[in-house]
């Protein structure tokens, strides 16, 4: 465990906490894409199947369980408890256009053709694009609440920090996984436009508003 990896994990955890607090405190999930949240739940459940087969560390097991459980709680809050506040009309991204290509790609390009490894690879590919429905929703409404921006910033930073972790591990441990690296690169690039707006607007106290 190096500092980049730890900061990445913490950033991921902070993102999830911000999201849950936003929904709970404002009693509303307005501006949040339920479709991205469904994709994240699929990502965690397919990736962490190794909870049943491989033990890495207590930290690892704990974080995996937290990610799986919080993603399910988020979906419950959006689709049951605070359903009335959910932005159905703007959350129209077709997630099958992300799920199916990720699955096909995972069947074609993987480290080993076993069920658990193909599902792990699928989750890596799917995660890289899972934020698209959320970014699509923001672009459709043309704005995002600042709390939603903080959530997106923390969530985007997480894979960016992982990239630094992979550079570090390549040199320090001679360890690398091309599938994770390329997908992580794609994932981080998708956030670049948002990062730019976040730094130039939200951090200066302005609302994140897209040019008309």
């Amino acid at each position: 465990m190096n500092i980049f990896r730890l900061l990445g994990d913490l950033s991921h955890l902070v993102a999830i906490i911000i999201l849950l607090l936003k929904i709970w405190k404002t009693r509303s999930c307005a501006g949040i894409s339920g479709k991205s949240q469904i994709l994240f739940a699929i990502v965690y459940t397919t990736r962490y199947l190794d909870l049943f087969t491989t033990y890495v560390s207590t930290y690892n097991t704990f974080m995996k369980l937290v990610f799986i459980m919080t993603s399910i709680v988020t979906i419950f809050l959006m689709n049951a408890k605070f359903k009335a506040t959910y932005d159905h009309n703007h959350d129209t991204f077709r997630i099958e256009f992300l799920i199916l290509p990720a699955l096909v790609l995972a069947l074609l390009i993987n480290n080993e053709f076993t069920i658990i490894e193909v599902l792990w690879t699928f989750s890596i590919y799917l995660e890289s694009v899972a934020i698209l429905p959320q970014l699509f929703l923001v672009s459709k409404t043309g704005e995002a609440e600042s709390i939603t921006s903080h959530y997106l910033f923390a969530l985007g930073s997480y894979r960016g920090l992982y990239l630094l972790n992979w550079v570090y591990r390549y040199y320090a441990e001679d360890h690398y996984d091309l599938i994770a690296i390329v997908a992580g690169l794609v994932q981080t690039i998708l956030y670049c436009d948002f990062f730019y707006l976040y730094i130039t607007k939200v951090l200066k106290g302005k609302k994140l508003q897209l040019p008309a």
Binding site: H12, N60, N111, E112, D177
Partner: peptide, 10 residues
């Protein structure tokens, strides 16, 4: 290869 397939990251 087995060691590489032990995914120790999240």
């Amino acid at each position: 290869i087995l060691d590489q397939l032990k995914h120790d990251e999240l």
